[in-house]
Design a protein around this nucleic acid. Sequence first.
DNA 1: GTCCAGGTCATCG
DNA 2: CGATGACATGGA
Length: 295
Amino acid sequence: MATSFHLPYTPPFSFDKCLQGLYRSPDEILYQVSDARVFRALRLDHQLVPFMICEQDAGLKVETDISLSEAQQHELSAYVQNWFDLEKDLLPFYALLKQNPKLIHLPDQLAGLRIIGIPDLFEAICWSIIGQQINLTFAHKLKRRLVEIYGEQIDWRGHSLHLFPQPETLLELDEVYLHEKMQFSRSKLKYLKNVSEAFVSGELSREKLLQIHEFEDRQKLLTSIKGIGIWSANYALMKALNQPEAIPFGDTGLTQALFNLNIIEDRKDEAAIKSFFESMTGWEAYTVFYLWQSL
DNA sequence: GTCCAGGTCATCG
DNA sequence: CGATGACATGGA
């Protein structure tokens, strides 16, 4: 009793480039990549569903051993579309990049690369908090520990697949243990609890965010929670909601990339950064992602 | 040893 | 308001 379905993408698309974008760290445990296939598990409707994604016929094939209901399949399909931003047409973005001599190499270098999203809003926000002010290597170690302790796990086709913990679970996280044994700072733990609290109470959710139409109002709702600053708010809007205009201002990687490409001369020149992004209207998030990837 | 990482908040002056 | 220190640790 298996379910398999096909999701078309809008060319140009490169699954290979996306897999490169997906690979962040050997400590990544929310998915596994091997042999041009991605393995992951999701909770759909109280059911743990491990699945596999690979490229097939100008699209992605999604396969699982579980027989999914129509609603479950719809949810899984939306997740994958969101994860790889399958439906976006990148050609206008490439046309824009080619207008800037300093970015003209990117359409060739990263041809077909999509923003690799984090469709789960809670996961995206927690990840932004974990990653605050520490190097990514260490951030991945911290995330791995949190997921290993509090997330569900399932073995499938030779892969150990972990799920990001639920807000209800992280609300009860053991601050003393995570601080003393797992190297979390007290402030990170406090922020993770604040965010969990907001999700459990319903103060914050993907649906609630989507009901708000103004971009700035979405930022405001996010930053009203202690631990989510403007960087994290924009990061979440970019990675979880695929908002094209989200720019994680203040991001050191972004600043570094702009400096490397001689787009800014002074890393602290916020006006220059703002002015640069005004030339990328509608494609700000993609520009950021491509700049990160160029590092 | 120093400096900085995909920051944020509280507490100043 | 803008500036400054605390947070917690690893890697360069």
